[in-house]
Design a protein around this nucleic acid. Structure first.
Ligand SMILES: [Mn+2]
Ligand SMILES: [Mn+2]
Ligand SMILES: [Mn+2]
Ligand SMILES: [Mn+2]
Lengths: 159, 159
DNA sequence: ATATAATTTTAGCCGCGGCTAAATTATTGT
DNA sequence: ACAATAATTTAGCCGCGGCTAAAATTATAT
């Protein structure tokens, strides 16, 4: 159990100086990545085991176990030792959100003509930094470009 | 993918490598943010004091002092207690690089029509995740859009 | 049923990058 | 010159999220 969550809102990051309206404590990048993978695994195989999560994230199993505890404590997952892990509604919500951001960012970078390997790597980082307004506008723009292929075509045929 | 420490190098080992060129160890997001601000301050006022760096980053002065030590250790700055801080060539290089990424990302988000406050926040996160190839393509695209305003105009006048 | 193998969990370590509180040092006003 | 003030630094704390090594549990094969 979370020991008295004394909060103090200090998850160590200069990068998220959200001028704290305090509402929800945002999921960290790491938590988003875990939930993204876990949700994919559950979807495709029906369960998410530490060994596979670790492989998917390219980290060690023991790190995964630790995070599973954390996901449970933070209300993103239900977890019992040796008994598997499922996502809560909150966890699914984050997973679907990050998936959508991932998809739009990667599609946009693909439109820009960036090498697939590189694109995947950058997407994994960028996806965590799209606020809802930005996501909305980017999605609309990508949709627009998809339906107007002449734009990117003209861009690519530039001098 | 994306372990958040993609470096394979154990932090413990990083210390051993410290002797080597700082360029071999990628600057963290935090380091990039510090260098970005410090370079701006030096440019505009001729020097960068902890109190102002702290204000610019919205963190405490003591955190800045600590990081100043780290920037020195990692070869990004020359620092002597109570005697001020200057950037090394490596530090300036990182600062100019992150500035360029910041400028292009924020210009792109501005073109998308995102609210300025929100745009600045997202830019601060996204800027750290543009690899050189992605940066190159994004820059070209933003330049293209700047010279073809009818594209964004048409996008904005969408149904 | 039990030995072996695979998986999972724990224990304990690390560096990062925040924080507060308490020195220490530098600056300023009289 | 010196006291008050401001800025800087230190000391020590925290949670995060990696890691290794070892223990515990579960699954498999004989
Ligand atoms: Mn990611
Ligand atoms: Mn992703
Ligand atoms: Mn930034
Ligand atoms: Mn920036």
């Amino acid at each position: 159990m979370t020991p008295h969550t004394n909060d103090t809102r200090n998850p160590t990051q200069v990068h998220a100086i959200l001028q704290g309206p305090a509402s929800s404590v945002h999921a960290t990048e790491s938590v988003e990545d875990y939930l993204e993978r876990i949700h994919e695994l559950i979807e495709s195989k029906g369960y998410a085991r530490p060994i596979e999560i670790a492989a998917a994230l390219n980290i060690k199993q023991s790190s995964v176990t630790k995070m599973m505890q954390r996901l449970h404590d933070r209300g993103y997952a239900n977890y019992e030792k040796h008994r598997g892990l499922t996502l809560t509604a909150a966890g699914v919500k984050v997973a679907l959100s990050i998936r959508k951001r991932h998809q739009y960012v990667s599609e946009f970078l693909r439109m820009l003509g960036i090498d697939e390997k590189c694109l995947q790597l950058d997407t994994e980082g960028i996806e965590h930094h799209l606020s809802p307004p930005t996501m909305k506008r980017l999605a609309a723009f990508v949709d627009y470009l998809r339906e107007h292929p002449e734009v990117m075509e003209d861009f690519r045929n530039q001098p």
